[in-house]
């Protein structure tokens, strides 16, 4: 499944809150490059912060898209805040808890909490906060026109949602 940075939606309260998880694996190619070994040190596999932001954005997109019956195109428009204070590595699970802060016809703002879960110890702790803004493309303020088909919630998203038990209208 290309470019999906969450593995499952585990909780969805319509128009309010969504919780998703992302398991991190050494089989993910980027873990070998981020960071590759150098002469000075051995390899250091760390989940890139940018992909954590993308996972939170995908989670927020589903939460907002669900509220609009997936009929409109929801895109990440602004990264308002990113604070990550601990690395996540292979074997860790990340949990993203997204809540809608404000919601209007043109878009929404969300607050996200990133927790790191250690499956082997059962421990979890909050390692970051990611606040985002999403735009509803059909109502964007720039007045730009986009293709009619919903290119945002394509097959990859639908597979994820079906696998998570999220109902997709029309199915």
């Amino acid at each position: 499944m290309r470019w999906m940075w969450i593995d499952r939606v585990v909780e969805l309260q319509p128009r309010q809150r969504l919780v998703s998880i992302k398991h991190i694996s050494l089989a993910e190619e980027h873990m070998h490059e981020h960071f590759a070994a150098t002469e000075a040190r051995s390899s250091l596999p760390v989940m890139p912060g940018s992909l954590i932001v993308e996972g939170v954005a995908q989670s927020g997109g589903i939460l907002i898209g669900h509220a609009l019956a997936f009929e409109q195109k929801i895109v990440l428009a602004k990264v308002t805040r990113v604070d990550l204070d601990h690395d996540a590595t292979a074997g860790d699970t990340l949990r993203y808890t997204i809540t809608i802060d404000q919601f209007g016809p043109q878009g929404a703002s969300t607050k996200g909490v990133v927790d790191l879960l250690e499956v082997w110890s059962g421990k979890s702790r909050t390692i970051g906060h990611i606040d985002l803004m999403f735009s509803v493309l059909e109502n964007n303020m720039a007045g730009i026109e986009f293709p009619e088909g919903n290119f945002v919630f394509g097959e990859a998203f639908k597979t994820l949602m079906r696998n998570s038990g999220v109902l997709i209208p029309g199915e």
Binding site: A77, K78, Q106, S109, N140, G143
Partner: peptide
């Protein structure tokens, strides 16, 4: 353009007001 929506959201929260679409900035 997205900052204008961000500003609307923040003004609503800070001042406890409701701003309709097109009320602060023209939309069409």
């Amino acid at each position: 353009s997205i900052d204008f929506l961000d500003i609307v959201f923040r003004l609503e929260q800070a001042f406890g007001i409701k701003i309709q679409q097109g009320e602060l900035f023209p939309d069409s």
